[in-house]
Design a protein around this nucleic acid. Structure first.
Length: 886
RNA sequence: GGAGACAUAGCUCAGCUGGGAGAGCAUUUGCUUGACGUGUAAAGGGUCGCAGGUUCGAGUCCUGUUGUCUCCACCA
């Protein structure tokens, strides 16, 4: 049953239909099957905070290419999709949505808020699923997961309890990053440092018992309300006498000691530092060393609390201004200098983070990090490209304990229960019956939830059933490749790796394929605030999913960022159209009844050449795919289809097709080869452009069920035809030479000329003879005359010298002999230079002795070739000499 | 302060383990050739940032240098 294809490719007509077919036939679904090898990957779960952006399209396209490739290779390919609850981000979004409706989140209460957030989740997870489907993503929808679904939640609870029981999770009062807007603690990774213009305020403190002053400098004067010491360097001569003495804290009028601590940099500022243990991580450490009091001066919303005396109730920057003003009025402010400093901000809301001392839950990282470091060193885990090893190792080797508790509602609640009587807590799977400390029977669960990355860290195994030892887990785990952007190596990749080792004893994947960011045409990050984001669905709507996918994977090296602009998608769309039309031509000619495989002896050189080419292409592409060089792989396929198959083979085949009646056997060779080579090319292209390839393949081989489930092409020894490749190489050289000449001389295409091809190579002439009719139109030749030596060729002809042959085009009146002579002289010059170069290399003894034999050999061959060409040119020039026209 | 990346044709970028510089777009000029003008044939355009080094040979490896960007880091 033959299908008619439309004149231009219209993606909309086929994409949805094909995706439905794939789903209906369960092609994306994988089950345990011991007879086959699994290939597993888990999708980095997109946040349910909104629609997918171009980065997601990129990430998922790469994964889809790999999974489709492996599926065709015969692996039992499993790709698990899902979404992430994105704790803080989602909570912020829902809170804002409520605010717009005039509802305060607190009014709703925890339960009400969670119910509302689940609604949000349903809506957005649906949108995301839809978007992924439009992109052609072949993940197993039957296994779609959510980081807060039952199974993932169970895994989270189990991990928390196990880590607690092993002593890796502890509750402690430590200085943490606090977001005053979201009113929650944050991990170090969630804090972004940005340089801001600020001030350096120099303040002098009276030294008790003297009339001296000690000058310090600070960027955050409001924190002086919580100062409990001044620190100087122990070897700082300037301040040696002051160590041990006290100073008066201005405004507050508290006496605080001067301590010596090596943390202080003598060269920086005044060399004396105010110490606020409750509001600075370093000061906190200094405070611990010197047993200093920790005075918390701030409320959770970053207003000053009752410890701030008369500043209590003021917002932090308001307090700063008031304090500076007052210091100035009272003569304590020495000077104010502009100062650029780094300010920590919350990566989700941009609010300046406040370091505060809080009771929080932490994961002790040192031990957990060890196997993750080791894995990279032993090769159990590798990054592509390798340079990300350093990023990974640097982070792990300097890792600090992970603050995992968050003071928000949307997330996994911490399984710790506090006794209502004595306040002691119990970590347990269920609410305990009786307090082991006091016997009380009433408990309250910890209000905090876990960092969103705590659950995504378990994603590669929680989605396969862990903590149960399921068949899925046994068969599909460890997964194979993880594809993700370099921006979440710290957040996610590292945490998955150490979690994998800790809970399953294995690395969760052997390879991490890292990609970059998609930027706009000017190289800027796509962001909501800039409004420069491009919606992948808009692109799909305009150009089709395949064009989008091809754009995302072309011309990009792993790990590098990419600029996205319409011209690139247009180029991809044009390629899709090219494939479509070449296929249309083939389908029109192949006919309904199909073509039987001809006897190999009947193939002509062009057939063998293209079979040989597609054969090596399969081999090369496979190698590139295995090295994750997807951009190189697709470039080779693109070049093959367009430059070799369409521009040469299809053209070379037309003569035989149009003369089918006379010589049916020859036409069949052409048709069979067209169909076969196209089929293989479609297979190779399929992972990149799944829709168009599947559609065409369905028309080309209606007897087969599906392209996506067909076999990946492998190299065949019987399709290796080196001599035909060489012959076609010559034919192309000659054709290009003729076209070039005609173009230069402005010969209209309608004017066909004879072409005399003179060569001493009988084999070549014989091969060419076979292709004569096929090749004639490409050379715009009315006839081709082949001769072993120059005979009766009109004097008024131009000559084209190619390796092994000279071509004469009798262009009669068009030939300007002066011009022809000049051209030949230029050619002679060029060849002489080439010969000189080759001779130079070959006369270099070191080259002969040190270079690989095949390089030396190829230089010799070049020398021979050029020498021969030179004599052809010179012969022609001599022949021309006798007939100079006045 | 530490680490990394990039610097190649007018623009955006490829170039894998070193062996005569490539693509797409843009520009110029032909072509209604029975799949495609979303096409086709041709042309112009590069001291591969700079300086050294290793090598028979460097866009590719090493060192230094300049410029741009990114990440990490507690300099108050």
């Amino acid at each position: 049953m033959k299908k008619e294809l439309a004149k231009t490719y219209n993606p909309k007509e086929i994409e949805e239909k094909l995706y439905e077919k794939w789903c209906e036939n369960k092609y994306f679904h994988a089950e345990v099957d011991e007879s086959r090898k699994p290939f597993t990957t888990v999708m980095p779960p997109p946040n349910i905070t909104g629609k997918l952006h171009m980065g997601h399209a990129f990430d998922n396209t790469l994964q889809d290419i790999l999974i489709r490739y492996k599926r065709m290779q015969g692996y039992n390919a499993l790709w698990i999709p899902g979404t992430d609850h994105a704790a803080i981000s989602t909570e912020v979004k829902v809170t804002n949505q409520l605010k717009e409706e005039g509802i305060d989140k607190k009014e709703l209460g925890r339960e009400g808020f969670l119910a509302r957030t689940w609604q949000w989740k349903e809506e957005y997870a649906g949108t995301i699923e839809n978007q992924l489907k439009k992109m052609g993503i072949s993940c197993d929808w039957d296994r779609e997961r959510f980081t807060m679904d039952e199974g993932c939640s169970k895994a989270v609870e189990e991990v928390f309890i196990r880590l607690y029981e092993k002593g890796y999770i502890y509750k402690g009062s430590r200085i943490i990053n606090w977001c005053p807007k979201c009113k929650t603690s944050l991990s170090d990774a969630e804090v972004e440092h940005e340089d801001q213009d600020g001030h350096f305020w120099h303040i002098k403190y009276p030294v008790v018992g003297t009339d001296e002053f000690l000058e310090i400098a600070t960027t955050r004067p409001e924190t002086m309300l919580g100062d409990t010491a001044i620190a100087v360097h122990p070897e700082d001569e300037r301040y040696k006498d002051l160590v041990g003495k006290n100073v008066i804290l201005p405004l507050v009028n508290r006496e605080i000691p001067v301590v010596a601590d090596a943390y202080v940099d003598k060269e920086f500022g005044t060399g004396a530092v105010k110490i606020t243990p409750a509001h600075d991580p370093n000061d906190f450490e200094v405070g611990k060393r010197h047993n200093l009091e920790e005075i918390n001066i701030m409320n959770d919303d970053a207003t000053i609390n009752e410890n701030g005396g008369k500043y209590a109730g003021m917002e932090r920057y308001e307090a700063r201004r008031a304090i500076v003003k007052e210091l100035d009025e009272q003569g304590y402010l020495v000077k104010t200098a502009p100062h650029m400093h780094s300010v920590g901000t919350h990566d989700r809301c941009g609010t300046t983070v406040e370091p505060l001392i809080k009771q929080q839950w932490f994961v002790k990282m040192e031990e957990l990090a060890k196997p993750a470091i080791e894995a990279l060193k032993t090769g159990e885990l590798k990054f592509v490209p390798e340079r990300f090893d350093k990023t990974y190792l640097h982070w792990l080797e300097n890792i600090k304990d992970w603050c995992i508790s968050r003071q928000i509602w949307w997330g996994h609640r911490i399984p710790a229960y506090y006794c209502d009587e004595c306040g002691e807590f119990v970590v347990a799977r269920k609410m305990p019956k009786k307090c082991p400390h006091c016997g009380c029977t009433h408990f309250t669960q910890d209000e905090d939830t876990l960092d969103t990355w705590f659950s995504s860290a378990l994603w590669p195994f929680s989605t396969l059933g862990w903590p149960e030892q399921t068949k899925d887990l046994e068969y599909f785990y460890p997964t194979d490749v993880l594809v993700t952007g370099y921006d979440i190596i710290f957040f996610w990749v590292i945490r998955m790796v150490f979690s994998g080792f800790e809970h399953t004893g294995k690395s969760p994947f052997h390879t991490v394929l890292i990609h970059g960011l998609i930027r706009d045409s000017q190289g800027r990050k796509m962001s909501k605030s800039l409004g420069n984001g491009i919606d992948p669905l808009d692109i799909i709507d305009q150009y089709g999913a395949d064009a989008l996918r091809l754009t995302l994977v072309t011309g990009n090296a792993p790990g590098n960022d990419m600029r996205f602009y319409h011209e690139r998608v247009e180029a991809s769309r044009n390629f899709a159209n090219k494939v479509w039309n070449a296929s249309r031509f083939i389908l029109m000619n192949v006919g309904d009844e199909g073509v039987a495989e001809p006897d190999a002896k009947l193939f002509n050189a062009a057939d063998k050449w293209i079979l040989s080419k597609v054969n090596t292409l399969a081999k090369d592409v496979t190698e590139n795919m295995d090295k994750y060089e997807l951009g190189i792989a697709v470039q080779k396929i693109y070049d093959f289809i367009w430059d070799e198959f369409c521009d040469w083979y299809v053209e070379l085949v037309k003569y035989r097709i149009y003369h089918k009646e006379e010589k049916p056997a020859e036409a069949d060779c052409a048709l069979w080869t067209l169909k076969t080579v196209l089929g293989n090319a479609l297979k190779l292209l399929h992972p990149f452009m799944p829709f168009i390839t599947e559609e065409i393949y369905g028309a080309l081989k209606p007897e087969e069920e599906s392209l996506m489930m067909s076999d990946w092409p492998v190299y065949k020894e019987e399709w290796n035809y080196p001599s035909d490749e060489a012959l076609l190489g010559h034919v192309k050289d000659i054709t290009r030479g003729i076209r070039n000449m005609r173009s230069e001389m402005n010969v209209p295409n309608s004017r066909k000329t004879k072409a005399f091809i003179v060569s001493e190579d009988a084999g070549f002439l014989c091969g060419l003879e076979q292709l004569k009719e096929s090749v004639q139109p490409l050379m715009a030749a009315g006839d081709i005359v082949m001769e072993s030596e120059k005979k009766e060729i009109a004097e008024d002809a131009v000559s084209i010298v190619v390796p092994g042959a000279t071509v004469y085009l009798p262009l009669e009146d068009l030939v300007d002999f002066e011009q022809e002579r000049e051209r030949l002289a230029k050619e002679e010059d060029r060849l002489k230079r080439e010969i000189k170069r080759a001779e130079g290399m070959l006369s270099n003894e070191k080259f002969i002795s040190k270079a690989p034999a095949d390089k030396v050999q190829s230089e010799r061959e070049k020398l021979e070739k050029y020498t021969q060409m030179l004599s052809q040119v010179q012969e022609r020039m001599a022949g021309l000499g006798g007939c100079v026209r006045p």
